[in-house]
């Protein structure tokens, strides 16, 4: 019974085309990159191909694209008001990208791109860069008023300003770790519970208990679908909230 559990194996990058090295870094077209481009393809299928007819009465796919659009437009509008419209392509792209990559991860044997911290961190860093660059361009030094809460006594500011700065710096970290950790932990949990089924089936009389982890695996799978959609939504919402700071830095 040499069945060994390896819940980590699923996260390994597999170079499909190796492109050489730059120092320590290995350059390769991996399955992760393939999934990312596949996600772009699927999103383009929903939002570009399905809307090509521009029907007034939409078909299923066009309806889907419209629902996503209105959902993100509403979320963005609630967080940022009218000024946030210019960030619609960014927030919409982020939401669709994370959502489709998360859902790809739910396909058996598929690779969960968002389980890699560097990917989620790259997206979070993009968001924070946009917030800082746009904020400074639009408001100049006034943007840094973001760290100075108004209506607070001067002595308190000495404590509050560092806290505000730390909380701002921790945003890209929390944004990226939240998504990465959810996907990673979910996939590991599913793998482990699914593995328990196999292990129990091979354990003689204990195999009568094997339905228990099976049911748990099914429940976890449902939960992971929820997490996949929810985390994409959370990512988009937090992006919109952070962008609001760039648009209206006054506290």
């Amino acid at each position: 019974m040499a069945v060994t559990i390896d819940p980590i194996h699923q996260f390994e990058l597999k170079p499909l085309v190796s492109l050489g090295h730059i120092g320590h870094q290995q350059l390769a077209f991996t399955q992760s990159a393939l999934y990312m481009f596949a996600a772009v393809g699927v999103i383009a299928l929903i939002t570009v191909v399905a809307t090509a007819s521009r029907s007034v009465v939409p078909g299923r796919m066009q309806s889907l694209a419209e629902i996503f659009y209105e959902f993100i437009a509403d979320t963005l509008h609630q967080a940022t008001g009218d000024g946030g419209k210019r960030f619609m392509p960014l927030v919409f792209s982020l939401f669709m990208f994370v959502l489709i990559l998360n859902l790809f991860g739910m396909i058996p044997y598929a690779f969960a791109v968002t389980s890699h911290l560097i990917i989620t961190f790259g997206l979070a860093a993009l968001v924070i860069s946009v917030v800082v660059i746009y904020g400074v361009m639009k408001h100049g030094t006034h943007f840094f008023g973001l760290f100075v809460p108004s209506g607070v006594p001067k002595p308190l500011l000495a404590i509050l300003v560092p806290i505000e700065i730390i909380s701002f710096i921790s945003r890209p970290i929390s944004l990226s770790v939240r998504l990465f950790a959810n996907v990673l932990a979910g996939h590991i949990a599913m793998k482990i519970f699914a593995f328990f089924v196999v292990q129990l089936l091979l354990a003689g009389a204990w195999s009568v208990l094997s339905p228990l982890p099976l049911f748990l695996t099914i429940a976890l799978t449902a939960l992971e679908f929820l997490v996949a959609a929810l985390q994409a939504y959370v990512f988009a919402t937090l992006t919109a909230i952070y962008l609001n700071d760039a648009l209206h830095p006054g506290h």
Partner: peptide
């Protein structure tokens, strides 16, 4: 693998952003 992943992420997301910004939205 970080550099490689970031490069592919930038390319894929850049392409997606371009498609969304210029065509889809």
């Amino acid at each position: 693998g970080f550099l490689s992943q970031l490069i592919w992420l930038a390319l894929a997301f850049g392409l997606l952003y371009y498609l969304m910004d210029k065509v889809a939205l």
